[in-house]
Amino acid sequence: MATGGRRGAAAAPLLVAVAALLLGAAGHLYPGEVCPGMDIRNNLTRLHELENCSVIEGHLQILLMFKTRPEDFRDLSFPKLIMITDYLLLFRVYGLESLKDLFPNLTVIRGSRLFFNYALVIFEMVHLKELGLYNLMNITRGSVRIEKNNELCYLATIDWSRILDSVEDNYIVLNKDDNEECGDICPGTAKGKTNCPATVINGQFVERCWTHSHCQKVCPTICKSHGCTAEGLCCHSECLGNCSQPDDPTKCVACRNFYLDGRCVETCPPPYYHFQDWRCVNFSFCQDLHHKCKNSRRQGCHQYVIHNNKCIPECPSGYTMNSSNLLCTPCLGPCPKVCHLLEGEKTIDSVTSAQELRGCTVINGSLIINIRGGNNLAAELEANLGLIEEISGYLKIRRSYALVSLSFFRKLRLIRGETLEIGNYSFYALDNQNLRQLWDWSKHNLTITQGKLFFHYNPKLCLSEIHKMEEVSGTKGRQERNDIALKTNGDQASCENELLKFSYIRTSFDKI
C-alpha cells in the first residue's frame, strides 16, 4: 500500500482533458527560462521544448504516446526543470519506465491550478516501474492521483506527508504495488545497510526511497516546507523545498512566496507586481503582455491589467481597466465587458449561442446573426445582446428569417469595421425574408467608422429604411451602385405612401 494514499474509496472516473512563447529569463536562482504550460502528445517531438525550461508557468501534460519505446527515452533528460506552477499529468506514455532521468531536479509542483483537485496525476502508464522524482520536495496545493499503472512499484516507500501538507485526498490505487509483488529495495538494503531515512506512518517504520538508488530526502521537522541542505541544516524561511546553503534567500532552489532578481522575498516591493503567484514583474512586463494579447485571437491570451499590486489576466467583477495605466478602477454604474472572439468572429444561430455573449459591452471581433427560429426570440436576444455598444469588426445579418427588427441591439452605437466582410463591408444584410426595420432612427444613433453597407434580398425592408441608415451611420456616399439592390429590397412591402385627393359631386333626387 502506498504510504499516505487512500484505498478502496469510491472515486469519480478520471477524465483526461485534452506555445513556446518565453516569458522571460528567471535569473540567477533558476538555471534556465520560464516556459508556458505545455500539452505534449502523440510523439516526442515537442518534448524537446523543455530543454531550457527551469519553470513551467502553467501545467505540463505528457500523454497518448503509443509508439514510443524505452530506448526512445534513454537520452532524454531535462535537468534544468525545477518547478511547475500548476500540475504534472502523465497518461498512456508507452515505453517510459521512470522519471528519474527525465526530470531529475523537479523540486516543486505548486498546484496553482489543479487537474480535478490533483497536482500530480500518473494514470495508465503501462510501462512505468517507478516514479523516480527523487528531488520532489513540495506539492504546495492539491493532491496526488496514481492509478492503474500495472508495473509501478516504489510507492509504499514514499512518505507523501513530507511532500504535501495533507495526504487525506491522495488516491493511489490499482498499481502493481497493490499486489505486494514489488519487493522494493532501498539503497544499501541488499548489503544489509540502512542508507535512507525511515519514518513512521500508520504504525509502520519504513525506509523512504524513490528507487533502488535514490533515497527520499527527509528534512528535520523544524525546517517545515522550506527544505534543508545535504547536511540537514534548514533553508531560509522564504525558500521552498530545498537550498544549497542554509538561511540564505539567494540560495533557495525555489521560493515559498515570490522570486525577485535572484532572491526569494515575502512580497513584491514597489515598483514590482505579483505575477502568477510566484514571481515579481515590473510595469513594462505587464504592459507588454497586455499589448501582445490586445489584437491576438490565441486562446488563453489575456490583456493583463494591474489590481491590488498584482498583474492579473482581467479586472475583477465591479472594476474596469483604465487604459492609460492598466489599473483596475471601480465602475460607475454597470461595468464594461470586452469579449474577445477566439477566431475573430462568432455566429449567433440560437439563443444558446447568444447567451455566451451575455453582459458583453464591447465585441472584439465580428458578429454573424443567422437565426431561423426560436421561442420568445426578441426578448431572449435583447437579454443577451442588448448591452453590446461596440463591435470592432463587422455585423452580418444573414438568412435570419425569424427577425423582424434589429432593435434587440438596443445599445449598439459603434461598428468600427477594423475587419470587413469580403474585404469591403462593415454591415452586411443578406436574404432576411421578414426583416422590416433596422432601428427606430428617431431614437437610435449608430456610427460606422469604416467599410460599406450591403443589402440584398431583404424583400420587406424598404429602401427608405436603408437610406436612413446611410445618413445616420455616416456611410452615405461610400456605397457603390450594386451594394444596395434596388429590386430585391422592399419588393414585397408597401414602401411608397402617396396622399390621394378626392373630389365629389353631391346629387339628390331633384338636383344634379
Rank of each mutant, 00 (worst) to 15 (best):
P336L: 10
D39M: 15
K67D: 14
D86V: 01
C264K: 00
E124S: 05
I185L: 04
P316L: 03
K310C: 05
L136F: 08
K67Q: 00
D165I: 06
I84C: 01
G241E: 03
T250R: 08
C235Q: 00
E97T: 06
C182G: 02
H307E: 13
L233E: 15
H59S: 08
I146A: 04
G142L: 01
F205N: 13
C243I: 00
P197Y: 10
G318R: 09
T199E: 05
L155K: 02
H302D: 12
M321E: 02
H290S: 06
S225R: 08
D277W: 06
K176G: 11
I185Q: 08
I82R: 10
S112P: 00
S143R: 11
S296L: 12
N149I: 00
T68R: 12
F205K: 11
N117H: 06
I158E: 02
P31Q: 13
E314I: 03
G232F: 03
C311I: 07
L120R: 01
F205V: 07
D178K: 08
C243W: 01
R297W: 06
L131W: 02
N43V: 05
Y273A: 10
Y319R: 10
M321Y: 15
L76E: 03
L233S: 13
H236V: 01
N322T: 02
T194C: 07
Y259M: 14
T85Y: 02
L99P: 01
T68F: 13
Y171A: 15
C223Q: 01
R145Y: 07
L50P: 00
D169C: 12
E97F: 14
I82H: 06
C243Y: 00
R113W: 11
C328D: 01
C331W: 15
R145T: 03
C234Q: 02
V173L: 11
H302R: 07
R256A: 04
R41S: 15
V173R: 14
M65E: 10
G192L: 15
C335S: 05
C301S: 12
K193L: 14
N195S: 07
S143K: 06
P79S: 06
I109F: 01
G192F: 14
A190Q: 15
G95T: 06
L131V: 09
D248I: 02
R298K: 04
C228L: 02
T85S: 09
R298N: 08
N150R: 07
C315Q: 03
R298F: 11
H59T: 02
C255K: 01
D72F: 04
H212R: 11
E130C: 03
T140W: 06
E180S: 07
E147G: 15
S143I: 04
C53M: 00
N202A: 10
N175K: 08
K217V: 12
C328N: 01
R69F: 12
S166Y: 09
C286N: 02
R69T: 05
P316T: 03
A190M: 05
F258A: 12
D39E: 14
E180D: 03
N170Q: 07
G203Y: 09
N322A: 13
R110Y: 04
I122K: 00
C264E: 00
K80D: 01
V108W: 08
F91C: 15
E97W: 14
R145C: 07
L155R: 04
L50G: 01
K191N: 15
R208P: 06
T189V: 04
C209M: 02
E207V: 05
L289H: 14
L76C: 07
V93H: 14
F115N: 02
E314H: 02
G37L: 04
L289W: 02
D159A: 04
Q287T: 09
A230I: 05
L128K: 00
R162E: 11
R141T: 02
K193Q: 04
S244M: 14
E33G: 11
F115Y: 09
P104G: 01
C228S: 03
Y171V: 08
D277F: 04
S296I: 09
W210G: 03
L332R: 10
H302W: 14
T320I: 05
C268W: 00
L99F: 13
H307F: 08
M125G: 09
G58F: 00
G262V: 04
D159W: 02
P246F: 13
M65S: 14
I139K: 00
Y94G: 02
S143Q: 09
C293F: 02
S237M: 05
I40P: 00
R46A: 15
K224N: 07
L332T: 03
L90S: 01
E71Q: 06
C182T: 03
Y94V: 14
N170W: 04
I146Y: 02
C53E: 00
V144N: 02
S225P: 14
F66G: 14
K67V: 14
E231T: 07
